[in-house]
Every structure is written in C-alpha cells, then in structure tokens.
Write a protein that binds this DNA or RNA. Structure first.
Lengths: 219, 219
DNA sequence: ATAAATATTTAAGCTTACTTAAAAATATTT
DNA sequence: AAATATTTTTAAGTAAGCTTAAATATTTAT
C-alpha cells in the first residue's frame, strides 16, 4: 500500500484513540495537511479496499484490516524512534521526523530485526506502546517511576515520558537514555530527591524528573 | 525530489560507471523496469530541472547537479547497507533491498549520524566506496587483505569483497563482520593459511578467504 | 425552530509517473 | 549502400493523489 494510504489509516487510528475521537474526513484532513475533499475522496477509495467503513457524513471507522495496517505502521514508527534514539544523538523531534518517513519503507522482516535488536521493547522513547508483530499492544506497564525505586537496586530505563526539550537535553547530557542502566544509590524521603549512579556518574534528581522517568528492575 | 527522480539519476550514474557505459534512455529504462517512452519522458523533464543534458537520440549525461544528487543517494544507500549489516543478522541481499527503499527517505542529517556512528567508513559491506557528504569518493584504499597482515597485530575488518552467499554465511557464523576486530595470531607462509582470533575464537582461513577480506591496522 | 456557521461532498482540473501504439530516427547486417 | 532490425520519440491515455469552487448536508447559536 502507498504512503498516502498508510498515513490515512494511521491518522484515523490515532484520532480514534484521542479524547476528541473525531474521525470525520475534515479532522483527518487537518491531521494530514490535505483538503477535506481529498480526505472524502480517499475515504471512499479505502472503503472499496475494505480498510474502513464509509457512510456519508459519518465518522470513519477502520475495519479489522485497516486497524491492522495502522498498527503495523505505528509499530514501525515507534521501533524506528527507539532505534534512532538508542544509536544517535538526535533530538526526539528530529527522531520523530525521520521515523515518519522510514516507517513506510520498512519490511516486516526489518521491523522484527529492529525489535529483536532492542530486546523487543514494549515502549518507545516517548513512552508510547509499541505494538508487537501481531498488532497487540501491551497496556499493562510493569515499569515504575524512578521515584518509586528502592535503594541499592539496579534498573533499566524504559520510558522518558515527556515532550520537553530541556528534559531531553538534560537526559542527553547525563546518559539518561532508553535502555541504559541506573543504580539507585540513595532515596531521600524528606525532599523526594533520588541519587543515582549512571555511566559512572552520580547525579541527583528531583521529583519533577523522577516522576516521568520509568524503569524496570533488572533481572 | 521524488523517488522516481532519485532512482533515475542514480541509474544514469551507475550505468555511466560501468563498462558498457550506455546511458541512452532504453538502457536506463531496462535498469529501472520502466518503458522506453517513460525514460525519454523523464529525461526531458530532468533536463529542464538542470539535472542532466538531453539531446535527442544521444546518451544522457548528468550535470554537476545531477551527479551530486546521484552521489547523495548512493551515499545513503551504502551507509544503510553498512549500518544494517553491522546491527542485524540479515543477508546482504535483504540488506540491499531494504537500503534501496530507505535511501530515499533519509535526511542528510541522519546520513551523517549513521556515518559518524560507523566511524565514517569509506566502504560498504560489499566493498563499494561510500561518498562523503560532499560527494567525494575515496578511490585509494588503505586497507590490505588479511593474507598480507602481520602476526601479532590487531586489525579492523573494512571490506568483505564478495557476493557469495556461502562466504557470508561463514562470516556470519564466525563474527567476521565489517568493523569487527581481529588479531592475527599466526601466518603460515607454507600453505598460505592465516590463523586469527576473533570474538575469543581462533579460526583458520585459507587464501580463498584471506584474499577477499580487507582490514585496516588498528591505530 | 430557524438562521447562520461549519463541514462534507461533488465536480472539474492538475501533476507525476507511468502505460501502449505508432511514427521517426539510428544501427546493424548483408 | 540498401534493407532490416532496433531504438528512440511522439502521442494519447490512465491511476493516484492531490487542488479549488460550488452544492449539499449537518451542526451550532440564537
């Protein structure tokens, strides 16, 4: 399927997941930066391909086939984000932009290889869940925030749930990266600060940060 | 520029480098799997964009601008091949296919990051040169074959110059991979065998293999 | 409930990147 | 050098994925 089609079903999927939940052509058009007319047109075509249900003036509803396609694209997007984030020193914004293009040119085989390489992660660097190759999404997150960790234990960073540039700059400077290992050397119950050892450096974090950094206990 | 345009200039560039050297529309068409008419059509359009010189019934000649574009695509292709080869256990054939798609969706920024990550390699896993960001190609290869190495020294694998599947299967099994480090433990002048230490394993190679494995001395 | 505002749909048209078929030029063979 | 074969070009047409403008339906506000 084409890039346009993949982006179309992805936009419906994402809009459907959101609070507003509006999947009428106009909203999808806005998301994709195309005209309403083009969205209606595409919707009719995709209905013929059994990717969505189309009824005039109604919300667009993905079929199972359409949902599967959307999840497959989302999977590839988030796997690319995770890989690029791990390998390169790039801003999350840049990473998102690259992944937006690469997601459409990635075979299932390559996606699986990326996933395997990363240890089949369940979440991308934003903390968004990565669908598995069957399109299943893990909603139960076993990770905990850094503020809820125990002294002396070692953890692996699993989510950096933020869109804040400054936070990510800080993370970049101190090796706080998806997949990296941290040792919690001290938890200060008084002022809710956490002292961690990462990459041979001791750093002190306040609750603003420890509450958005998610980790998993190392096996 | 579009994928079609990028592939078109790339095909001219590659055909121009080959022995036959035929860059008439028919040959480019064959390379790309499109009709002769489509190739002529495209040639006229690209001439207007100053990417090539077009004269009826003559060979297509890339302009400087066109050559630059072709080299940029080739660079991205080969960087992707090098990266995928390093990271994943995929056949060179699969890697080529993935790179063929990814090359068109890769920003210059990402290309530079990949290059940097790999240590700015001058050759891809096939042994083909990787143009730098200015489109310059290193033709002088400082690497030597494994058969010409010295005992006791450590080298980094720089080229595996083969298209043979069995050779690459062997390489995969023994960690003979682009970028990996080998210690030459013994050179047998008599039967031209080479004993190397790689990934904590000692293996013995005959000249068939040591003459197509290129390495650089470790600094 | 009706008028005004907004959204959707239809219709006509554009560009890109192809196709096939026929005409024109070039290359090859004898 | 002429005849034949091949290649290139032109011409006409198609599908995808858009656009704008106008018609139609729905939603919101009064």
């Amino acid at each position: 399927m084409s890039v346009a089609v993949e982006n179309f079903v992805k936009a419906i999927y994402k809009n459907g997941k959101r609070d507003n939940n509006d999947t009428k052509p106009g909203n999808i058009a806005k998301e994709l930066g195309i005209s309403n007319a083009a969205a209606t047109d595409m919707a009719k075509k995709l209905a013929l391909k059994d990717l969505l249900h189309y009824q005039k003036y109604q919300e667009l509803k993905l079929t199972d086939k359409g949902t599967k396609m959307a999840l497959n694209v989302v999977r590839k997007h988030r796997l690319w984000e995770a890989l690029l984030f791990k390998l390169f020193d790039l801003s999350l914004h840049d990473i998102h932009r690259e992944a937006e293009l690469l997601e459409h040119q990635t075979s299932d085989l390559l996606a699986n290889k990326i996933s395997e390489y990363l240890g089949n992660p369940k979440f991308d660097p934003h903390g968004d869940p990565i669908p598995n190759s069957d399109g299943e999404i893990t909603t139960i997150d076993t990770s905990i925030t850094l503020s809820n960790t125990e002294e002396g234990k070692t953890y692996i960073i699993s989510r950096l749930m933020s869109d804040d540039k400054e936070f990510f700059d800080f993370c970049g400077q101190h090796g706080l990266k998806y997949g990296n290992t941290v040792l919690v050397s001290k938890q200060f119950s008084k002022n809710k600060m956490t002292q961690i050892l990462i990459k041979n450096n001791t750093i002190l974090l306040n609750e603003d940060f420890t509450s958005i950094i998610y980790v998993n206990e190392q096996d």
